[in-house]
Amino acid sequence: MARLIVNRLIQLVFVIVAVSSLLFVLMRASGDPVSVLYGDIDNETRLKLRKELGFDDPLIVQYGRFWGDLLIPKFDARGNLRWFDFGDSLRARRPAMQVVLDNLGNTVQLALVSLVLAVIVGIPLGIFSAITRGLPSVFFMLMALILQSTPSFFLGIILVLIFAVQLRVLPPFGYGTPAHYIMPAICLAAFPMARLARLMRSALLDVMSLDYIRTARAKGLSNSMVIIRHALRNAMIPIVTAIGLDIAFLLSGSVIIENLFAWPGIGRQLVTSTFTRDYNVVQSIVFIIAIWIVAAFLLVDITYKWIDPRIKYD
């Protein structure tokens, strides 16, 4: 188990070093950040700002400072502890990481609501479609296939057209009341939900054709007993991976949805910062997302071991 965690941590370090370095180089290689940030300013002010913000130093010095700020905890002029510091947000004039953390909660809330929705709807539908034959199960699987092929933002636009523009029962965008969660959560949940339903169905069907299920039936167990006690446990193995991947990639899925519904999370912030070239904010968001994903992978590893004790990691 310790080994598992160490391996994932090594992966995390690699991801962060590689992605941060790549972004560091690309962002500084592509034009003067000061002119992008402050628009039309006279040359003198521009040069002064460049010097002040440290863009005048050689790239390698900037790179060293980047890692120094990130790894070495220290106190800034205002006496705040700065650690995992990607510098100030060039726009908000506050530590970029702070700006991002302020919004992280909103994104995580939306992601978790969507995850719960995807699991409690997708998995039962998958089980239902596997154990029954007939029109409803065909219909559900067709719906799942269509949902899987619909981009989340198109689904969002349709929902807004119906529930906000036509029926006027839900707010079209924004944040605040529980009603604001409904449409963004459905859009974000749609793809994982459809995938879980399809995967659950095929996993259960695969398991149901195995010999040990026949044996269980031959023992005289009832059908529901066979499914609940014997089939589901094994069919859950691929599902756990899928849920783990869904958790991992919900944050990135929310980039689109947050922009569509003006949800004040890090996804919307990522796009805004991209447009305004607020590099430090982009770096901070990327850092947070990398940690989130590796944590989700680790969760999958651990759950795996718990469901299927035969699995050994080495």
Binding site: L26, V271, I285
Partner: peptide, 16 residues
Amino acid sequence: AFPFLVLAIAIIAAVG
């Protein structure tokens, strides 16, 4: 271990 879309957005931010 890194989302495609986020990476693409970040890189497009840099390269245009």
